[in-house]
């Protein structure tokens, strides 16, 4: 557990505390101080982590990029959680046609590799932070949907739900009052598992040039910007990658911890969530 705490606090320190300190402007270009190495003094200019090809301070950009990446990832997870829970509960509670349709759609979505699906849609709608967030959210609901459906299927047979049904409770009321509170803790665990994946996906898309667009920084984008200068100043690519790694590893540790405490069904659901049934 302390590993996760250490990794996550290091990232939080960078994203939350760093911008409060007097660091350089993340957009401030100065070509005469381009590609400085970490801790390099160049006349009166000193940069802790060095500068990129336009002389922008890497530390400042990493901090801003982290905010961008985390906001996108957390919002996307929230969107997919809402969609997944709604569809999963409907499928598991009503069964029948609704279930076949929803689960068929899930299988269809899983039959296109996720990166490819995102690329295809981005190509059509164009890439912006908002589009990227919505797309990541809309395309990752399946894990939540599957777990929520499985849980709803067993919950609908329980006495408290059945008694509510016999008293004339509407399906909507039942789902909201009785099913949702019971599936929510599990959904948050699935969410913690998905968060790491969404962060990596966002970084991959931005690396491909299809995600966050310059001049706004994102860790994935910074890695691709640095790739051309790998032989001169590899730090441009190393630092952002390290940030992604620390965040994803920290989140993964946390979610593993949660999963261990959650039940067996859930463990199976998250482990197999990648593959079509």
């Amino acid at each position: 557990m302390w590993v996760a705490s250490f990794l996550l606090s290091a990232v939080m320190l960078l994203i939350v505390v760093m911008p409060l300190l007097p660091i350089y402007d993340p957009y401030g270009q100065d070509l005469s101080y381009g590609l400085m190495a970490p801790f390099e003094h160049d006349g009166d200019k000193f940069s802790i982590l060095g500068t990129d090809f336009l002389g922008r301070d890497l530390l400042s950009r990493l901090a801003l990029a982290g905010r961008v990446s985390l906001i996108i990832a957390v919002s996307a997870v929230f969107i997919s959680l809402v969609i997944g829970v709604a569809l999963g509960l409907v499928a598991g509670f009503f069964r029948g046609i609704a279930e076949n349709l929803i689960m068929g759609f899930a299988d269809l979505q899983l039959s296109i590799p996720r990166v490819l699906l995102l690329i295809a849609v981005t190509a059509v709608v164009g890439s912006s932070v908002l589009n990227l967030t919505i797309l990541l959210g809309v395309t990752s609901w399946v894990s939540y949907g599957r777990v929520a459906r499985a849980m709803a299927m067993s919950l609908r047979e329980r006495e408290f739900v059945l008694s509510a049904v016999t008293q004339g409770a509407s399906p909507l009321w039942n789902m909201w009052k009785h099913l949702l509170p019971n599936v929510l803790p599990q959904m948050l665990i699935v969410g913690s598992f998905e968060l790491g994946q969404v962060i990596t996906l966002e970084a991959s898309l931005s690396y491909l040039g299809l995600g966050v667009q310059p001049p706004l920084p994102s860790w994935g984008l910074m890695i691709s910007e640095g790739q051309q200068y790998l032989a001169i100043n590899p730090w441009m690519s190393i630092f952002p990658g390290l940030c992604i790694f620390m965040l994803v590893a920290g989140v993964q540790f946390l979610s593993q911890r949660f999963t261990k405490e959650g039940d067996q069904d859930l463990k199976m659901a998250t482990r197999w969530s990648k593959k079509p049934a």
Partner: peptide, 18 residues
């Protein structure tokens, strides 16, 4: 194995190139 899973594939490739 766990650590490798947390590294994005493109960054790993870049480290190998480096």
């Amino acid at each position: 194995a766990f650590i490798r899973q947390a590294i994005p594939v493109f960054w790993f490739g870049l480290l190998l190139i480096l």
